[in-house]
Design a protein around this nucleic acid. Structure first.
Length: 423
RNA sequence: AGAGGAGUGGCAGAGUGGUCGAAUGCGGCGGUCUUGAAAACCGUUGUACCGCAAGGUACCGGGGGUUCGAAUCCCUCCUCCUCUGCCA
């Protein structure tokens, strides 16, 4: 969430930024934030003063008791009764102002970076670059949902039998392709200096709030109600939460982590005819990279992560494009997001396979993720993350783009991981 | 899962109702001494909120309560340790 001080000190910049998201009620809400914070400050100051008074009376009583002046002590005891009542009501006022303020801040998205274009939807995203030739397929080419049946490598019906729609079963070469991609992605990340972690895939409420999935996106996560735990929609949640309530030293920055996890998304209400096959699933595999950086270096880190992800796509020989998301299409918590899309030739569509974002202090404020700077002051660090990569759409594009009448050719870089060259 | 024990500052570890934001030791930082280092000695060393500041307030696992006053007493939750049980 935004810092109240940022809202105060940079009101115009914040307002202007939020307007890129077509966040029309921004001005009113920002003013409300300041009002509530003022209210909070006033009640707290009053409360603290009364408390100071009560504390000093208590000390006095202690002093008198030690001197054996019981009667005098009894006399001034009454004085505190009134104070206590006032303090209690101020405490309540303070707590409710704080709660209201927090609830309000939860509804305000992150301020877009200066380079983020205005826009309402995906159509207004800016294409930063396109790489690779769009393949021309032979007559009689098939979309991936047909290919997986033809070669018997992924079975959706079996998944329906044991779980439900959107939970595919990978078989034979299909399963090996999954394992190959995961290992390839992890190995590449290690080479690029990321430290591998293997986090839990169930997280508690606190973690969900800290990275911004709760309270707003509650319906998107599977909830294990018996234990009040959530299945992660992305490894971003557990990996970033590793650093919740942590004060790092400047030397420890940047922190670079990579982790493979399955991801679970309910995708409530977003099902439709255009999401056949692997295009959208309830469970899928993803390798995620996370960085915690010094505020001055986060945009450089973002570029590095974007370049890194593009490197993966080049090695997989997939044509791709990079989009700078417009204000209206960008995620709630992000300041700047690049989406990487690969071209899936049989469908004739671009498929999003990665999203690389800088959250600046939006997450670290909730996380209380800080570092001690060179002047020994604690300040919020910046957090970033990106998919590197999400598997299903990569698989879709690999299958569709590389199909031949004699089978599906796998990119060279995967051969040692796969143990075969063609499906 | 059952029985018992325990959670205090970066770490170790005192503290069982007031003078305790908290002894002491270690570590860290600054200094004295030294050609340099070590040792020794002196000083300093948590986080957050309000305030221009002086200062004030809160925090001894989390939450609630008793009391004029809680690290200390009570309730509750969480975590860890030991034993028993179960288990990949």
């Amino acid at each position: 969430m935004l810092l109240v001080n940022t809202v105060r000190d940079q009101f115009d910049r914040v307002l202007e930024g939020l307007q890129k998201r077509n966040f029309v009620e921004a001005e009113g809400l920002l003013n409300q934030v300041i009002d509530l914070d003022d209210k909070r400050k006033t009640t707290q100051t009053q409360r603290d003063q009364l408390q100071a008074e009560a504390n000093s009376i208590s000390k006095e009583i202690g002093q008198l008791m030690r001197e054996g002046k019981k009667e005098e002590a009894e006399k001034i005891k009454n004085k505190t009764a009134e104070l206590k009542l006032e303090i209690k009501s101020l405490d309540e006022a303070n707590a409710s102002a704080e709660e209201e303020l927090k609830a309000l801040l939860y509804t305000i998205p992150n301020v877009p970076h200066i380079s983020v274009p205005f826009g309402k939807s995906a159509e207004d995203n800016e294409t930063v670059l396109e790489y690779g030739a769009i393949p021309t397929l032979f007559e009689g080419n098939l979309p991936h949902w047909e290919l997986i049946k033809k070669y018997d490598i992924i079975d959706f019906d079996l998944g329906v039998k044991i779980t439900g729609a959107g939970f595919p079963v990978y078989k034979g070469k299909g399963a090996r392709l999954q394992r190959a991609l995961i290992n390839f992605f992890l190995d590449e990340a290690l080479k690029a200096g990321f430290v591998e972690v293997q986090p839990p895939i169930l997280v508690n409420e606190e973690s969900g709030y800290a990275t911004g999935q709760l309270p707003d996106k509650e319906g998107q996560m599977y909830h294990a109600t018996a234990d009040n735990l959530y299945l992660i929609p992305t490894a971003e949640v557990p990996i970033t939460n590793l650093y919740r309530d942590v004060i790092l030293t400047e030397e420890e920055l940047p922190i670079k982590n990579v982790g493979y996890t399955p991801c679970f998304r309910r995708e409530a209400g977003s099902w439709g005819a255009h999401v056949r096959g692997l295009n959208r699933l309830h469970q899928f595999d993803k390798v995620e990279i996370v960085q915690i950086t010094h505020p001055e270096h986060s945009y450089q880190a973002l570029e590095e992560m974007s370049t890194y992800v593009q490197g993966l796509l080049k090695k997989l020989e997939l044509p791709y494009r990079v989009l700078r998301l417009c204000g209206g299409d960008m995620g709630f918590t992000s300041s700047l997001t690049y989406d990487m899309e690969v071209f899936s030739a049989a469908q004739g569509r671009w498929l999003e396979v990665s999203s690389v974002s800088n959250f600046e202090t939006y997450q670290s404020n909730r996380l209380k993720l800080r570092f001690k700077d060179s002047e020994k002051k604690t300040q919020l660090a910046h957090s970033l993350n990106g998919s590197a990569l999400a598997l299903p759409r990569i698989v879709a594009a690999l299958l569709e783009n590389n199909q031949t009448p004699d089978g599906i050719m796998m990119p060279k870089v995967l051969h040692p991981y796969l143990g075969f060259e063609k499906i």
